Amino acid sequence: MTLPLLEATGLTRHYLMRRGLFGRPVEVRAVNGVSLALERGRTLGLVGESGCGKSTTGRLVLGLERPDAGGVAFEGQPMPPPGTPAWRALRARMQMVFQDPLGALDRRMSIGAQIAEPLEIHRIGDRPERVAQLLRDVGLRPDQAGRYPHELSGGQRQRAVLARALATEPALLVCDEPISALDVSIQAQVMNLLVELQARLSTAILFVSHDLRAVRQVSHRVAVMYLGRIVEEGEPDAVLHDPAHPYAQALVSAIPHPGRRQRRVLLQGDPPNPADRPSGCAFHPRCPAALPLCAQEDPVLKPRPGDGRRVACHVAQGDLPARKAA
């Protein structure tokens, strides 16, 4: 059996947050026991509401943040501690594409200089020709290397960020909401570019997004997060056409389908405060199919027989028969 390129096990990251100006600090579980695996040349889409822990998970798998518990293995080897020489050397093989391309670029440096920077850091030669080729790879012209970020459009800036991330030929890309700040037409161009580059370079991609339509287009597997945990994970056709977890059902029902009527699943109440997590399943106060067991016992993410997906739900796993909501 081939080892996955990236494997995260039980990742946990907590923060201390103060309630009010003089309140006592309380613990917020941003990521709470996340496990995932990603193979070469494959894309895992990580979806969920804002604040569910998607971006923190992306930073944890790259070692940009240190987990409180759990660990990450890259090519079968444990991730070196952040900041060490071994970790810096490994970072050449793992890169991140940020949400805001203008914020990710230095406005005082030309695009070409910023693409060349990782080549200089990791001592990769032939820089001028390499920069020109990278610009061509992402659909920009080599003569645009001398331009500054404010002289490019939003789509061109995101292509420049992608060119910089690809400079060291990474085996893994973590894309954190890479299209959310772009126009719809430019979003399609960037997603098509990611698919083309992956096919050519066999790069593994962790695609973090709240846009289920984008995730469906680029992903080989999809993982749905809620309040710091993965609640469902499987093939896109299974998760996005016939979701098993009630939260995933609500997410999918919100995707508009022109010309087709569909039943919208409306959730009651607001997402719970991460600093005051409900007992048992964190979703049970909003779940239309909740059982008494759901308030008492947190379901484990485990394989569901027959369809190749993992689900953390007592009802979907058949622990007890579901009852209709009143």
Score class of each variant (00 low, 15 high):
Y148K: 11
E232Q: 12
L38Q: 11
V28K: 03
V300L: 15
R42N: 08
L16G: 06
Q198N: 09
L90I: 06
G45H: 06
S202R: 15
Q99A: 04
P128N: 06
R323C: 12
D137R: 05
V26G: 01
G234W: 01
R229Y: 12
R323G: 02
A69K: 00
T9M: 14
R310A: 13
T12F: 07
G41M: 08
C281S: 03
S219M: 06
Q156V: 02
C287F: 03
P170R: 04
L201M: 06
E297A: 10
T12V: 14
R29E: 08
Q77E: 15
Q262H: 13
Q77R: 09
S110I: 12
R260W: 11
R42P: 13
A86Y: 00
D176H: 01
L5S: 13
S185E: 11
L134M: 05
P81G: 12
C281K: 01
P118N: 09
A289V: 12
R304F: 04
L194F: 02
S180P: 09
E297F: 04
H257F: 11
D237F: 12
A290Q: 01
F98C: 15
G280A: 03
G269L: 01
Q156I: 03
A250P: 11
E75L: 15
L227W: 01
V208P: 03
A322D: 07
P256Y: 05
A244T: 09
H314T: 07
E49P: 10
F207M: 14
P258Y: 00
V239M: 02
P4S: 09
K302H: 05
Y148M: 13
N192G: 12
D242Y: 03
I186P: 02
R13V: 04
V208S: 00
E235H: 13
A254F: 08
H150N: 15
M94S: 07
A92R: 13
R88P: 08
L102S: 06
D307V: 02
R123F: 10
E177N: 07
R164N: 09
S55K: 02
I124S: 08
P258Q: 02
F98I: 13
I115D: 01
Q268I: 05
P118L: 08
N192M: 07
I179K: 00
I124T: 05
E235P: 12
S180E: 11
A295E: 10
E39V: 13
I255N: 08
S110C: 12
G10L: 03
G63L: 03
H150P: 15
I179Q: 04
R200Q: 15
E177M: 08
A316T: 00
S279Q: 14
L173F: 04
P101T: 00
H314K: 04
C52K: 05
D183P: 13
A132N: 06
Q198V: 07
R309Q: 10
D106N: 15
P321Y: 05
A165C: 11
R88N: 08
S110K: 12
R136V: 11
L201P: 01
A165F: 03
S253I: 09
M17S: 06
E75W: 10
A116E: 02
L194G: 00
G23M: 09
P101R: 00
Q144H: 12
R29I: 08
D100T: 11
G269Y: 02
E27D: 15
L46I: 14
L102R: 06
P285R: 02
G154E: 13
